[in-house]
Nucleic acid binder design. Sequence first.
DNA 1: GCCATATCAGTGCATATACACTCATCCCAT
DNA 2: ATGGGATGAGTGTATATGCACTGATATGGC
Lengths: 155, 155
Amino acid sequence: MTEIETSCDPQQCREIGERCAVLNLRKAARLMTRLYEETMKPAGLLPTQFSLMVAIRAMDPVRMSQLAAVLAMDRTTLTRNLRPLERQGLVTTGPAAEDRRTREVRLTPEGQARLALALPLWRQAQTRVAERLGEARLSRLLADLQAVATTFLPE
Amino acid sequence: MTEIETSCDPQQCREIGERCAVLNLRKAARLMTRLYEETMKPAGLLPTQFSLMVAIRAMDPVRMSQLAAVLAMDRTTLTRNLRPLERQGLVTTGPAAEDRRTREVRLTPEGQARLALALPLWRQAQTRVAERLGEARLSRLLADLQAVATTFLPE
DNA sequence: GCCATATCAGTGCATATACACTCATCCCAT
DNA sequence: ATGGGATGAGTGTATATGCACTGATATGGC
């Protein structure tokens, strides 16, 4: 008779830990987040907040859903992630004139100044990563991460 | 005289979004998390919880700090991430006999059964990723992510 | 043996993440 | 013009993440 799998041996689990895409992605993300967080601390922006502001500035003004889609972030997560930035007066959101259901997100002048302040620190973190990981490996990693994004982003 | 950078143009921000390591890592992690979460839903384990149980089983029994180090997860984050698993009776923690400051983490028999239940679903998710991303690219990505881990893990 | 220090784990607080549900606005068919 | 479905955004709840701080136990110098 066939056996139903009711256990899982440790050696098998070690192999899974080596090969699991989500585990390794999240683990690397935690490490990278800490590195950027430490480096950019003087600018008073956490990595997610910096990323958000960069994305906003790239499309300024941009609607909530559009921004969420580009970042592959849930729309409701975006709503909450904008809160600390709004509280600090770095971004504003307001209903669009043409469609009052939508909200347009913008960087304030203070937000632009803060982002400009953070840019050199970001470059510093990025340079450190490139040095320690190697330019070639970093470029390859970024390309593969973008492949993940285009492959799994709901079109 | 030299100008202080007080603004940041949108085009520059688009380039930063393309090259930023932390942004692209977190974005890919969000997408991958959703894929595994959906696939493994029938087993009642979120991706982080599955990863945690795999890591525990690989070293069973394992001390809190040791587990946190392997996962590159803050020790206090680990404490809280174990809660839902303890509540479901899938893992237990208790002080080690030799040093009562430390706590040893173990999978319960129920935890082992649940992990065995989740394994085929994990394989299904992993296979889907390999198919859509390509075996070669996935292997390369995993190798680079592990390079990130070894490079930026403390000591 | 005893205290100073080091080490291990938990709490309080804040941010990050997303699903289910709700509310507001728009648009179209009648 | 209006009512009903479609679409955009927010809330409630739960998990994930980590820093600063606290409490508990071990250990070494005396």
